[in-house]
């Protein structure tokens, strides 16, 4: 845990930068493989995500007519950067977060949302019909899942009385796992993550049979590659967050591995289990069921905290 790496190495290679990107690709592979196996297919070989990215990077990036050129090039970079920044506050690979300050949870969640925002902007930037529809859907979806996802992550935070991810992580390990204490929050968090990543069945913003690739229809080459890597890394970060909050924290890399992989197994199963929801169904589901579920959960947590300091909290760090 207390390896002392120089900050630069930490940023560029481990646990930031390259290793993070690589882990994104690995998790994408595992995800695709799992979904394939759930559908009784062989699925891709291990290097497929990498091959995809290399192929995209090697391709010409076509900048379509009618876009704001700077924005078109800039948005994928912003998206990826924000995701990589978010990784710094999260106990990636079970290590201590590279940086932390009180309240970094909120910052992290918003950095993660920046990705969707960039995708939405990228879609709105073009004149393509599919992109525009995709962008509206992406933003609509963002507004619906963002609140429940944040609330779901706040559950443990409030229960532990700290908004610092690192502290929540270590405290969660010493408590009853929050998946048992706050099951609704866990469900909301997993589904919220899937909504964030636009995984099926919440893939209305990029429903290929309707609007081709949604907001990213006009992207090719480098821009698309960056968005894809960004989304892969977001997947890893999201899984890490949920695992550290709800699955008893991540104390070491081994912990990280098995907990996130189990989570991935669950999300892959959910991906293969349902038909795509229409955007109105997604929104309806979130606001009618998701938010209320999480709000009730939160209420319970707050009430529990008020009336019962009997529960042996070991909020060691805070």
């Amino acid at each position: 845990m207390n390896l002392s790496l120089s900050p630069l190495v930490e940023l560029l290679f481990f646990p930031g930068g390259l290793v993070l990107l690589a882990s994104g690709l690995v998790y994408e592979f595992v995800d695709r493989k799992l979904v394939a196996r759930f559908q009784n297919r062989i699925g891709p070989r291990w290097f497929q995500p990498l091959a995809d990215v290399i192929k995209l990077l090697a391709k010409e990036e076509v900048i379509p007519a009618g876009v704001v050129k700077g924005l078109f090039i800039f948005l994928p970079i912003v998206a990826l950067t924000s995701i990589l920044t978010a990784a710094l506050y999260v106990p990636m690979f079970g290590l201590k977060p590279a940086f932390s300050f009180p309240g970094d949870l909120v910052v992290t969640v918003y950095l993660l949302s920046l990705m969707t925002l960039c995708i939405g902007l990228a879609g709105a930037n073009t004149e393509d019909r599919f992109s525009l529809v995709g962008a509206t859907r992406a933003l609509t979806q963002m507004f619906s899942y963002e609140a429940p996802f944040l609330l779901a992550l706040l559950g443990p935070a409030i229960a532990l009385g700290t908004w610092n991810i690192g502290q929540i992580n270590s405290a969660a390990g010493n408590n009853l796992w929050f998946i048992i204490a706050q099951p609704f929050g866990f469900i909301a968090a997993v589904i919220g993550l899937m909504g964030k990543l636009e995984l099926p069945p919440f893939d209305a913003p990029e429903a290929e049979t309707e609007i081709v690739a949604g907001a990213l229809t006009e992207y090719s080459g480098r821009g698309l590659a960056l968005f894809r890597i960004g989304r892969d890394v977001e997947l890893v970060i999201g899984l890490t967050l949920i695992a550290s909050f709800y699955l008893g924290g991540l104390a070491n890399p081994l912990d990280f591995l098995w907990k996130t992989l189990i989570l991935l197994l669950v999300t892959a199963a959910l991906q293969s289990l349902f038909a795509r929801l229409r955007i109105d169904q997604t929104v309806g589901l979130w606001w009618r069921i998701g938010s209320i579920m999480v709000l009730l959960q939160l209420l319970a947590v707050v009430v529990g905290r008020l009336i019962a300091p009997l529960i042996p909290f070991l909020s060691s760090g805070g």
Binding site: F38, Q39, R41, P200, A207, R276
Partner: peptide
Amino acid sequence: AAHEGGFDTLFMLSWR
């Protein structure tokens, strides 16, 4: 039809 509705598991398995 399942694929158009985004239900790829039904798609894959029925084709299997």
